[in-house]
Amino acid sequence: MSLYSMQKFLFDLNRDPGVQALFRSAPGNVLDRYDLTREERAAIETHNIGLIYVLGANGQLLMHYAAYLGMPWPEYIAAMRNGVTQHGAVRAGIYAMTTDLNEKVANI
């Protein structure tokens, strides 16, 4: 249920400007609506793309979230690689990393 809740937050945020505005002004109030683990909540609060990736968020939800954060593409790719380096392999979902940690795919 928890990964589901984290992804539901990303879904709601990514598609709804109203949620985005509220999240900017009162992020805690928004996150209180979701049944998140302490690790998931902290990852979101600190914009920790790498950990959210490792926790198993669907890549499309995560990519749109990174875009919402204004994260340039190379930083987004690097953040996911750093997440795997720090926290280990992706734990759930269908967006696991299949390339080597030091591999430069698309020269990034």
């Binding site: 990736y53 499309q60 996911m80 967006y95 990393m97 299949t98 390339t99 795919v105």
Partner: peptide, 10 residues
Amino acid sequence: HWPATPDSGK
């Protein structure tokens, strides 16, 4: 394709 992952570009 392997979009939105570190594999993006594979």
